[in-house]
Design a protein around this nucleic acid. Structure first.
Length: 134
DNA sequence: TTCCTGACTCCAG
DNA sequence: CCTGGAGCCAGGA
């Protein structure tokens, strides 16, 4: 995000969205995300992309992050600290009450973090597509 | 209404 | 190894 892009305009996609039939709204994408995140076992973590892929929209990993942003109001609570980016980095730590909250929560679950990166991330990685069958 | 910005990820140079 | 562009889509100015 070093350089701001000028005209990316999503007018095309926007137009597409408008023209989409959309008979009836599918269940909230956010709620689906929340549900998956709540299934993450204690001591394990997953990624935005993995969740997105599990929900059938690999390219919408960003929306998963967006969902996390809204997750703090959801009930029951969503363990957002168990969701990191594909490198096991705590990319969302700044969205917690305090910048250290995410790491602390993980530590309490037995997950060690070094320089904002989860130790042995690959070992504790939990892939909903493989281990979860909704 | 239009434009821009992301808790992302993949792919090409 | 690092950088940049593209695709995705919701929400705010």
């Amino acid at each position: 995000m070093t350089e701001r892009k000028k005209i990316k305009t999503n007018s095309k996609t926007a137009a597409l969205q408008k023209s989409l039939p959309k008979p009836k709204d599918s269940p909230s994408f956010f709620e689906d995300v929340f549900e998956v995140v709540r299934q993450i076992p204690r001591g394990r973590v997953t990624t935005y992309g993995a969740i997105a892929q599990f929900l059938g929209t690999r390219l919408s990993a960003r929306m998963v992050g967006w969902a996390m942003n809204a997750s703090h109001t959801s009930n029951p609570p969503v363990p957002a600290q168990r969701v990191v980016n594909r490198n096991g980095m705590l990319s969302g730590k700044h969205h917690f009450p305090t910048p250290t909250k995410m790491e602390e929560l993980l530590k309490k679950e037995g997950i060690l973090v070094k320089d904002d990166v989860i130790i042995d991330f690959k070992k504790i990685f939990w892939d909903p597509s493989l281990e979860l069958s909704l």
